[in-house]
Computed example of a mutant assay.
Amino acid sequence: MLYYVLQAISALACAMPRSLCDFLGRVLGNFAWLVVPSKRKKMAVGQVKMCLGVDEAEAVRIAKASTVRFGPMLFEVLRFPVIKKHAADYVRIEGLEKLQQSLSDGQGAILATAHTDNWELFGGALAMAGIPLVGVAMKQKNSAADRFINEYRTMIGMHITYKTGVREMFAMLQKGWVIGLIMDQDTNRHDGVVLNFFGRPTNCTPGAASMARFRNVPIIPAFMHQDERGGHTLVVHDPIYVDNTGDKREDIRRTTQVINDVIEAHVRKYPEEWFWLHDRWKSVREDFSESDYRHYE
């Protein structure tokens, strides 16, 4: 039933003017901020203060803006059937030639990004621009919601695989596809590597560097942000290459740190667009001194 409800809501959103959808999205986002549990709000505000060194009022403003944007983001996903026909009106891409050049030898590449702006539209914009992109997704707990979002992802050109589909990722990479990885969420300590992020020990996922080193392909950082047109600008950065010194662990650590530095720089530039509600330091707080996370509580 939920699947058909989502389809109906999408049809309605596609029939409405873009400006009305943007307005309704902001209304929905502001309501979402009101119902976020106080403990989660406090955590998000604490992370903003800790990372950016701002005062309480500014931290609340940034955390709230980060949450409110989920409303317009949802409406944009619902409007994928419309956006597919008018992609250039929604997303402007800078540096696409860097990604195209990296793919020219047919060996594929790793795309490293973060939970910033509308990451669902981010992947779709590159796919609609002709990039053979594999979106690596987390399976939704609700099967109807999972079916809906994956159909809409594939509608705008992405190939979707789940995080557990590592063998498929390597197979697609060998065929010249780009593997899109979101690199800014906490992972379990067994799979992660502790590096520096915003000056604090942070558990980071080494997947991009590990895959790139194994297949000898470049890592392309890319991020999207809201622009003055009321749309989005997607910026593709210069490729990062993983050294192969013989010390696999250190090669992966060093490259993952470089990726984290690029992510941090983007978040500092567009702090309102990052996913501050995610508990980024959950798995490491107890292992380090309180001074490392003094603004967290």
Rank of each mutant, 00 (worst) to 15 (best):
A129Y: 03
S283I: 07
L12D: 01
D251Y: 04
V284G: 06
K85A: 14
Q174W: 00
A171I: 02
A88L: 01
E76H: 07
L52P: 10
N260Q: 15
C21V: 02
D227G: 13
R153K: 14
N150E: 14
N118L: 07
T255W: 07
A212V: 07
V235Q: 13
S291Y: 01
S143V: 12
A212Q: 04
S291R: 07
A44L: 03
P37T: 04
H266T: 06
W274R: 05
D251P: 07
I9L: 15
F275R: 03
D55W: 05
V178R: 05
W119Y: 15
G106D: 02
P201Q: 11
Y90E: 12
I240T: 08
N188M: 09
G192A: 14
R215K: 14
S291Q: 10
S19A: 15
P72T: 07
M183E: 05
N150Q: 14
D184R: 05
T154L: 01
G95C: 06
S104P: 01
H190N: 13
V194G: 08
M158C: 12
V77A: 04
T116S: 15
P239L: 09
K85Q: 15
A63K: 11
P271H: 06
P81Q: 05
G53A: 03
A265F: 02
A222S: 12
L277Q: 11
A171G: 07
